[in-house]
Amino acid sequence: MVLIQKALPIVEKMPGGQVVVTSMDAVLDWGRKNSLWYMLFGLACCAIEMMATGASRYDLDRFGMIYRATPRQSDLMFVSGTVCKKMAPRIKRLYDQMSEPKYVIAMGNCAISGGPFYYDTYSVVKGVDLLIPVDVYIPGCPPRPEALINGIIHLQKKISKEKSY
């Protein structure tokens, strides 16, 4: 009986009298992974591919992913393109302004390591993981929308295994 009382906050009464019992983590992770609102924010040519993925042909809406034009309402940040040294503090600030839980996808070779700008350049950050933690890396120059969706599904798998304690 004590156990049932303890379990009450995580037991929900369904219309019709049934009762659903699950672990809180499973519900939270399920909700999080299916409503990854991403930040409307692009850096370079990868952003064009990200826009194509968000538009009707590849349709990120079917994953519950809607873009948000403010970091306060975003769960996910695509770092889509070359990170210049002048842009680096702005990206860091945008990441800091996002509310927890927050995820980052490094999209394309530039965001992973500097890509074609690794050599002989004075202005490019060699990988966005030098600035902010990255969850999923998607190589490509730029990655096709299928690759981006594959990376998103990997992120969803990662989120679905999260534990809150």
Partner: peptide, 9 residues
């Protein structure tokens, strides 16, 4: 121009 951070090809 010289910059030690530049990685040469």
């Amino acid at each position: 121009y010289k910059n030690p951070e530049i990685v040469r090809m």
